[in-house]
């Protein structure tokens, strides 16, 4: 009976530990290396980027040093099963909300850290800058009803 309970506890803890349980598997090999919490946070950040800006790509930097640009739409589709666990609103949304209330039009070099339940850093979100009410088209900027998020990057620990 004790052995049975240990197995149950172990299986229940797998998602929290980010182990590769079948339910945590997705089609993209690189994304599959992420822990459950990293996947949830990635979905949440991608959703914010989609809602807040016209930015279509984000660079993911994995903990082995490899990196790849992903389309926001692809990330949302691939990670959609983590949507129910995603934080609403997340740290990025709250960050922008705070600055817009202060009428700050531009923020340079954003660095936001996301933590797991144990307080360990799991993600760093970086951007060269944010501009309220702007959109980047090619090398130019035009007025917009959204926010310019310049060169968004997500670094995994």
């Amino acid at each position: 009976m004790i052995k049975f309970n240990i197995i149950i506890i172990f299986l229940s803890a797998l998602p929290l530990l980010g182990m590769q349980d079948p339910a945590n598997q997705i089609g993209d090999a690189l994304l599959n290396t992420l822990t459950f919490e990293q996947k949830v946070s990635t979905y949440s950040l991608a959703k914010s980027v989609e809602n807040l800006s016209y930015t279509s790509k984000v660079k993911l930097i994995f903990n082995d040093g490899s990196s790849k640009y992903y389309r926001i739409a692809h990330l949302l589709e691939t990670l959609k099963k983590y949507a129910p666990s995603a934080e609403k609103p997340n740290k990025l949304t709250n960050y922008i909300k705070f600055h817009t209330k202060l009428k700050i039009k531009e923020i340079k070099e954003i660095k936001l850290f996301l933590f797991d339940k144990n307080g360990e850093k799991i993600i760093k979100f970086e951007s060269d800058g944010l501009k309220i009410g702007k959109r980047k088209i090619g090398p130019f900027e035009v007025p917009s009803n959204r926010i310019l998020i310049a060169s968004p990057r997500i670094l995994y620990y």
Binding site: D128, G129, K136, G138, P139, F140, E141, V142, P143, L148, A150, S151
Partner: peptide, 9 residues
């Protein structure tokens, strides 16, 4: 209305 983006190369 249209400006060079400071984030452009």
């Amino acid at each position: 209305l249209i400006e060079r983006s400071e984030y452009s190369d």
